[in-house]
Design a protein around this nucleic acid. Sequence first.
DNA 1: CAGGAGCCTGAACGACGATTCAATCGCGCC
DNA 2: GGCGCGATTGAATCGTCGTTCAGGCTCCTG
Lengths: 200, 200
Amino acid sequence: MAVIAEKGLGATRIADVAARAQVSAALVLYYFGSKEGLLAEALTLADDRFYLRVFHDLSELDSAIARLLRLIQLACPLKGAPDRTGDDWVLWVELWPRALRDRDAGRKREAMDRRWRATIADVVKGGQALGEFSSELDPDDFALRFAALIDGLALQVVMRDSEVTPDRMRAVCEEVAARELGFGRRYGGFPDEKEAAKST
Amino acid sequence: MAVIAEKGLGATRIADVAARAQVSAALVLYYFGSKEGLLAEALTLADDRFYLRVFHDLSELDSAIARLLRLIQLACPLKGAPDRTGDDWVLWVELWPRALRDRDAGRKREAMDRRWRATIADVVKGGQALGEFSSELDPDDFALRFAALIDGLALQVVMRDSEVTPDRMRAVCEEVAARELGFGRRYGGFPDEKEAAKST
DNA sequence: CAGGAGCCTGAACGACGATTCAATCGCGCC
DNA sequence: GGCGCGATTGAATCGTCGTTCAGGCTCCTG
């Protein structure tokens, strides 16, 4: 995953992966069968890891607003120290062209996206049930729009667009969420690093 | 451009392009110097064409609302007959991974995006000046959000996500625009094919 | 009509990189 | 202690392109 994120899907050679793992290229083939297999496993592993992390993080929060804010935080490609969240987005950018033509990759991408939208929608539904969010909004509609917004912003961020920093992305997402879902801003603010570390 | 859209940047061989043009592979190199040059020119040509088309189309409309609706129309990847608008999005998806690592590609992508956001912001400013749009909105802020929304939705559409059809994308974009900019829906409706053909 | 300048091509050439293979190594088991 | 088996590797092998090259074709010009 690290090598793909660094070099790109197309430019990733078996020898690179082998070098990173400090083994021979032949051994990589021994375990993964082929380059295709290697790349496929890496990409699905990345997806699974991300979703697992989201699922785990969200289940620890009891307020829907907190869950939504965490969702936004997890979706922002930070290139800082904590972990390489930006790598996830790089891998997705790499995955997209492949998903256009490879049937399996396409299915996996669609499943991942559906899961992501469903997660957003679930958080919204929970918030509506708890009375934290306005009930006038259709959760699935909102999820579609919000997921698209996040994708588009994250794309700029991961491309290092100087006008769209991670901070600005987070701010925009929070504003939109607050406006559409009708909850006040700074509801205890954004979970800071200390809090995030505690939960890990 | 057609070959890249069909096969993908990585899988595009000089021989493919040559075959499509019904010439020899050597001739392609004769004109483009190298594969890199060929791909770079193809991608920039695609960008320029799209922007020219946008610029031309918008300049023919006198209502800001009509311009905004046309903007939305042009951004929707239709895979129908009219022209291959979807190809543009495929090419961008191909461009993104390259832009992550190739300095020139990155610069071009950022410029393209900035131009696109500026176009949106200009339409909004024009509409505010004409009194068609609410003046409370910051045009640049809106442009950032709206461009991201379009990117995210178009991504799903071009990936053939069964839940995000071109029609739904258009509908979502129009709703968001109408709501945020404060103009009534169905202001003369959406320019239909006849009208679009006339302007070509 | 001869000369030359582009235009165009088929046939090498070479590099690169995935895959294969035969040989070695380490180690638990009889 | 020898055996067998999985792990591991260096060294081929083999295909696939990008690129180069030497030459042919066409058409314009003097």
